[in-house]
Simulated scan of single mutants.
Amino acid sequence: MAKKSRKNRDVAPPAEGEVGPRQPCPCGSGKRYKACHGAAGGATSPFVARPFEGLAGECDLIALRELVPAATAPLTLADGVTGAGTRVVKLCTLLPAAAPAMVRDSGEVWLGLQVQHHYGDPSRDLAAVLLTALEQAERGESGIVGLTSDPGAGPRLQDVLATPELDVTVHDGFEYWVADVDQAGDDFTAALQQANETIHPTERLTGVEAAYWTNVGTKEHLRWVMPHDEDALLTALARLHAAGKDVLVEDSRFVGMFRAHGLLAPVWDLPVGTGAAALEEPASRFAAELETALAQSADLTPEERSARAGLANRQVTIR
């Protein structure tokens, strides 16, 4: 009797939200899940699907980590943390040489978000780097602070930061790298210029949370990280889509969503020339309509069910 092909064996598909064994590991290591956080002993720390949950600025934190090129925000340390109340701490999308953290000559501590540590819990990893940098600053030592091994169990950002919303400043370039120095060397100036050439113009909308307009040259986008439960958000978006209420401005198009750190971020394509200012009123109106749709409990109509099925399959890339 011929052996059954492995390809023909019935394999139960992963449940919604679950990672399949042959899919890329969500930690970003580049390995398959079964060889990383899905393997016994494959990763020393458990993978945390929504690492920034509970932080007041969760949505903006995800946006700054995943899609905003150059931005900063001051951080407030929780009582009892080294330097609380005295040390200036700044959150940055990206630091020179993609450093995890830096202690500046001024004594300020800068924490970089766009760093991939691959240890399962970005919140714990970022907290470990921040605490190390704060201790280094207390010793009067400046320089880069890194994380070269799994820090193991320990405080997370939720433990070391106070809870105010992030006061985000989006920058046109990385000049904030040298804002606190009198003169940068030629090599650093060249690196700064090269980094600035990679930036697409980006602005944060002021009327809603964690919505960012960007111009990539051939088109413009609005990318909006939302805090809602994924299932409830999909249902609400389906109601609005079926009603034709997800068009922000003329000729704009809701193209799909991406997932990042446990939350969904809807994405719109916009006509070139739209700009961020033109989105303020439509985005605020959409946010109000979305809250109304989230509160509805009636069964979906056939049109809404069809819209939901289509939306669930509209996965887009972050960049």
Rank of each mutant, 00 (worst) to 15 (best):
T218Y: 14
L113N: 01
V168D: 02
G107Y: 01
G30E: 09
R314H: 11
C92W: 04
L270F: 04
V19Q: 12
G83L: 06
E165C: 00
R305H: 05
A277H: 10
P100I: 02
T292H: 14
V89G: 01
G140W: 11
V48Y: 03
E165M: 11
L130H: 06
T202F: 11
E58G: 03
D150A: 12
L77K: 00
L234T: 05
T198M: 04
P122G: 06
D231A: 14
A312N: 07
Q158Y: 08
P21Y: 01
P69I: 12
Q136S: 14
H241A: 14
K90L: 15
R156P: 00
A211L: 05
D159K: 06
R314S: 07
P155N: 03
G41D: 10
E108T: 07
G140Q: 14
A288H: 12
V267S: 10
G273H: 12
L91P: 11
S252T: 06
A12C: 06
P282A: 00
A98Y: 11
L126K: 10
E197M: 09
V170A: 02
A278E: 11
D79M: 00
A184M: 13
K34N: 08
V170W: 05
V272S: 13
P122T: 07
E291H: 13
S45Y: 14
A97H: 12
A97I: 04
L294F: 03
D79W: 00
N215C: 10
L161A: 04
P227M: 02
P164V: 09
K4F: 13
A238W: 12
E250H: 12
F188C: 03
D182W: 03
P201C: 02
E108C: 08
G154E: 02
L95T: 09
A179D: 15
Q194T: 13
H261I: 03
E230W: 00
R50D: 15
T317H: 09
G275W: 10
H117Q: 07
V247S: 11
G152T: 06
G30T: 01
G217T: 11
K3T: 05
D167R: 09
M226Q: 13
G244N: 08
M102A: 13
T132S: 14
A288T: 14
G120C: 10
R124H: 04
